[in-house]
């Protein structure tokens, strides 16, 4: 049984149906990426998992159905979601953002976790008492990742972490994501438009076109697929 299994998923915003029957699964410990152009429905897919849009079809996580659960219940089950646009708490300090991230955990003291994540993202350590709203885009993205990881999630959902960041910062961020993957063994589902970056950490890949899965397979297969290379890798 896969950690996350999605079958026949459809999603709509009001009367407009955006996803048309998506099948997707993520195995424990692997990183799956969803590629696709703007408006293909990547964000909608990832929001469907957290039940932030109205969906039909099946979504199971660790064998439990997620459909009909509230977003915060799903978060408490161990699904951490870094939304598109980062969703940091602008009025809270960096440390407080991390503390909120650990909301589902029962412990009281997280100082060793803070130290750990400040070790991974030293830039955040310098700004620990600063309001998150005053951070740069790259710093906010790091904070968003660290905040999500503070919950010790079983599954981490990342929605276009590279969006709006300078290439050099993106490289740096993915470097660290790889570290997190290797050291924490957390399962990830990453949505990206930047295919070469995505393939650099992925085990499995899906290509989404107009709300339906156009291609799927192991990352290596897709990386060498001609259509994918032309459309997403540009060579």
């Amino acid at each position: 049984m896969s950690l996350l299994e999605i079958g026949g998923l459809t999603a709509s915003y009001g009367p407009v149906q955006v996803l048309h029957g998506i099948d997707l699964h993520v195995e424990e410990g692997e990183v799956a990426v969803v590629l696709g152009a703007n408006g293909a429905g990547k964000t909608t897919t990832i929001r469907s998992i957290c039940q932030m849009v109205s969906t039909k079809g099946s979504i199971t996580f660790q064998g439990q159905s997620l459909t009909g659960k509230s977003t915060s219940e799903i978060a408490r089950m161990g699904v951490a979601h870094v939304p598109q646009g980062r969703g940091t708490f602008a009025d809270l300090t960096v440390v407080e953002n991390l503390e909120v991230g650990a909301f589902r955990r029962k412990e009281k003291n997280f100082s060793s976790d803070y130290d750990f994540w400040f070790g991974i993202f030293p830039r955040l350590a310098e700004r620990r008492a600063q309001l998150a709203g005053s951070l740069s885009g790259g710093e906010q993205q790091m904070l968003a990742v660290a905040r999500a990881m503070m919950s010790k999630p079983t599954l981490l959902l990342l929605d276009e972490p590279s969006l709006g960041l300078a290439p050099i910062i993106v490289q740096d961020l993915f470097q660290r994501l790889r570290t997190i993957k290797d050291e924490q063994g957390v399962t990830m589902l990453v949505v990206e438009q930047n295919a070469s970056l995505a393939f650099s950490i992925a085990n499995r890949a899906y290509v989404l076109e107009a709300g339906a899965i156009a291609l799927s397979g192991s990352a290596d297969e897709l990386k060498n697929d001609d259509a994918v290379r032309k459309a997403y890798l540009g060579y």
């Binding site: 957290c50 932030m52 509230s70 977003t71 915060s72 219940e73 978060a75 408490r76 951490a80 979601h81 939304p83 969703g87 940091t88 708490f89 602008a90 009025d91 809270l92 407080e96 503390e99 909120v100 991230g101 909301f103 589902r104 905040r147 999500a148 919950s151």
Partner: peptide, 24 residues
């Protein structure tokens, strides 16, 4: 307090609060 933090989180960003498991 934890509820106080949750309150400030919800005030700051409703959607993200749900995403970290705060019962809004």
């Amino acid at each position: 307090t934890k509820i106080g933090l949750a309150f400030r989180a919800v005030s700051s960003n409703l959607e993200s609060s749900r995403l970290v498991g705060v019962n809004v």
